[in-house]
Design a protein around this nucleic acid. Structure first.
Lengths: 253, 253
DNA sequence: TAGTGGTCTAGACCACCAT
DNA sequence: TGGTGGTCTAGACCACTAG
């Protein structure tokens, strides 16, 4: 193993303006991220205290704090004053806050129910392979489901995940509503962030049937690519949504 | 005037758990925000150095730094190492980064051209009054325009702003493409953040004509409410977009 | 009461920029 | 060369939680 323990200071030795210089707190963060990706600390568990981490990594508490601050801002950690710093869990509250942007026009956010239509092992087609950055034909698990908002079918959803990250997922007997929680607890894959591309499209015959509307009805298409803590693309998801009484909420800061 | 100069420490005197306790750095930030809203420092100008601000506010440099850090994270300030801290300008780069989320499917971000259709003084209808939190019938300026992406008409846009914030805007001879820059330079109103609600809708006859498509074509409706530095709703904007070769990019972090 | 994170301070040194 | 922001350290004290 190369750099597993304490941080080797690069600052003092590197030439001024040298490439590859990184602040200590980023090096500290990198080590913590690595441990997070390796599952050294499980979701919901407390990390060691700040002074402990500091002496462990060989830096001052203030430096560790800055690393933890960034990871907290990225929703990877949760700090609770007087209790400790915890690995963020993919509970419904977090998913509603970070990933699920559909809100009723009245302003209510609720976690959607799911009705599973299909779950099978397959091979990545060109589109999925390109998005997930895996070879075409590589094994994947494919999920098709309808999601209910306030008891009405409003979202038709396809999900493709790499078989290498989620072995056996396609043959599970049951699939929970909250997939990100499953990814983390059963496969050790923590979704850290995602990018979404939105378009307006017309409903095809399948959406018309499943979402109880007519062909050509305008739907919001959400094409999401979700990334694990280490940056690996871990899930591709395409959601077609009726937005008659709901909208996608976006904050521009 | 109550608290204009130095910060009155609340921490030591307030009872433990007392309501209304705020950290020093937030009080410092509040004062800086107020000065920003009052136009004490103009967009593009440099703020005083950190030690200067610290002695000015009567706190330590580290405390000022934390306030500046937050304001930088909110895109209100820009720090340039070795040069100083500057008030963020609404140049095209910032708007593309912070507010304009339409991207070509190839991944290119470009600032859209505008073709003005209408500019007039009007009275706020119920919808505009509700969104802008002004009385119904209050004077507003209304703008209607078409925006071009890669030389093709792709967005049909209505904009309503309160007449009280932008006196005389409706009778301007010319209207620049970049409105936020105009708001800041001509009226001292800096847009700090916005919320958007997205829906898929069908094109009406007017959109069909303006956007060179047929009625019923699916369009992405973006309903944006933009807020000034002090939190006042300053602009309501409804954009209907063809997303055939473009998409709305959203980052979930 | 002990332990945690949160705030605040003070100062040293580094990296970057303008001159 | 001088001034700026960026990083790093060390320590004091406050606020919150648990036992």
């Amino acid at each position: 193993m190369a750099e597993e323990g304490k941080i080797r200071r690069e600052a003092a030795t590197a030439a001024p303006g040298a490439l590859g210089y990184r602040p200590l707190y980023r090096q500290a963060k990198e080590i913590l991220l690595k441990r997070l990706a390796e599952g050294v600390w499980q979701p919901g568990q407390a990390l060691p205290s700040e002074p402990e981490l500091a002496s462990d990594l060989g830096v001052s508490p203030g430096t560790v704090r800055k690393a933890l601050d960034e990871m907290t801002a990225e929703n990877l950690l949760v700090r609770r004053q007087g209790r400790g710093t915890f690995v963020a869990r993919h509970d419904e509250a977090r998913i509603l806050f970070q990933f699920f942007k559909l809100v009723s026009d009245a302003g209510e956010r609720r976690f959607p129910e799911s009705r599973l239509l299909r779950l099978e092992a397959a091979k990545a087609d060109a589109a999925a392979a390109g998005r997930l950055r895996i070879p075409q034909g590589a094994p994947v698990a494919a999920i098709e489901r309808v999601r209910l908002l306030e008891d009405c079918p409003r979202v038709h959803e396809w999900i493709v995940v790499p078989g290498s990250l989620f072995p056996g997922l396609a043959s599970r007997a049951d699939l929970p509503n909250n997939l990100y929680e499953l990814y983390a607890s059963a496969y050790g894959v923590t979704i850290a962030r995602a990018t979404e591309r939105l378009k307006a499209v017309a409903a095809g015959p399948r959406q018309a049937e499943l979402l109880e509307t007519e062909r050509g009805h305008p739907l919001l298409a959400i094409d999401r690519l979700a990334f694990a803590v280490d940056g690996t693309p871990a899930e591709w998801r395409l959601s077609l949504c009726r937005t008659d009484a709901f909208h996608y909420a976006s904050e521009l800061r």
